[in-house]
Amino acid sequence: MRTIFLLLIALLASTGLLQAADRPHVGLVKSADGEAFIIRDGQRLGATPGAGLREGDVLMTGAQGSLGVILSDDTLLSLGSSSRISIERFTFDPARGAFAMVLRLSRGLIEYLSGKISKLSPGSVHIETPVATLGIRGTHLIARVEP
């Protein structure tokens, strides 16, 4: 009985049902237009202004959608239409000197303006795309991925 209970816990943990609340808060939706969503643990949530973001979240926009987002290290991000980007990793912990950011743009269009992670720890910020990975040293850019 006890084994089954433990297995159930392990299963819940592995499917992510226990994870969303544990993941750190990493940012905020500042503006949204048209269809804009957050995908968290397989659930599609509306990306409305004021919605909080967590590590692991995927941001998505529809054909008429756009999004403006600010991350906890002051990074600014906007998404154009038909775009999809995931926050694969985000660690901003100046007290421990721990910094990391990995974003994965799988399709669409983003503008990125770097925040403190890139300034305090050059080389810790990466944007992955299906065809290449970007290493970012404190800067401002547009990235576009067409299928």
């Binding site: 770097s114 065809v131 290449a132 401002h140 850019l141």
Partner: peptide, 21 residues
């Protein structure tokens, strides 16, 4: 898939660097 990347100016900062690899 095809991708394009454009470096933009940054206010009050010299332009940074992006390595595409």
């Amino acid at each position: 898939p095809k991708a394009s990347f454009i470096l933009l100016p940054e206010e009050n900062h010299p332009a940074g660097e992006v390595i595409i690899q």
